[in-house]
Design a protein around this nucleic acid. Structure first.
Lengths: 130, 130
DNA sequence: AGTTGACCTCAAGTTGGCTTGAATTCCTAT
DNA sequence: ATAGGAATTCAAGCCAACTTGAGGTCAACT
């Protein structure tokens, strides 16, 4: 069992954030020692996942819906597939954006937004979006 | 030249957002007709880029640094490469997250966080991060 | 027994990215 | 010339995701 300072050190999250996450039900502490919260080490996994989810652009609410309350009865596999598809689309957009940026970096068009290659790359992304 | 309502329709952004973006220097209007702003059509490209940048997790400040004030003298190619690298890393994380989610969706482990395959996938991501 | 220092609670504050509302100005049509 | 309607300004408000601060509590050491 970890106290909040240890968990903070392990996870890289400030204690205030850990308390906040517990308050909104994203993680939970498994008891107290006096006033002090005690956490199981498994919580670090959850924290890593939460951070990943944020990177993927999900809100904390969405993340909670995904990784849920622990001991959840059943998880919604269809919802998971939908989220995976969302991430897939985002990966496509990011890939195009990255290519566009890389191109701009070596392109010599006076105004980079005018560069035809860049425009083509961006049009491709915009299509995917719709 | 487009008035704000037309630009709004074309871009899908509410007029309030367009005014806000102009205020913070992300887009600019090229004159007025009476009080009414007039925008060049090219602005729609910038708006699309801004939206992409947000998807990629950049703040409006960072996006401004990237696509900059128009007519900027020179663009910082090294900075662009750094951003492209950042996006690359993010793509890697998202890919792993997606795979993890897909796996959970069909995995029958009682507690999905305990599934060894899932754990392995996630460990791989966490390594990349450091 | 008392002082220290880590942790606690709870309310209020902060930042980013917008939206909303009230009061105003300007073109257009009658 | 006057009434309408769309766009304007500016200040205030809102939500998410935290952080900060004041004041309280508790174990532990001297």
């Amino acid at each position: 069992m970890l106290d909040i300072t240890e968990l903070s050190r392990l996870s890289g999250c400030p204690a205030s954030k850990l308390r906040y996450y517990e308050e909104i039900g994203l993680i939970r502490s498994s008891g107290r020692k006096g006033l002090k919260r005690l956490f199981e080490e498994e919580v670090t996994t959850r924290l890593a996942l939460i951070s990943l989810g944020q990177t993927a652009g999900f809100s904390l609410d969405e993340i909670r819906a995904l990784i849920g309350a622990e001991g959840r009865p059943e998880l919604d596999r269809a919802a998971l597939e939908r989220q995976a598809d969302k991430i897939d689309r985002k990966i496509g957009e990011l890939t195009a954006l990255r290519d566009g940026i890389r191109h701009i970096a070596q392109c010599s068009a006076s105004n980079h937004l005018d560069c035809p290659r860049f425009k083509r790359i961006m049009r491709a992304v915009l299509k995917r979006r719709a």
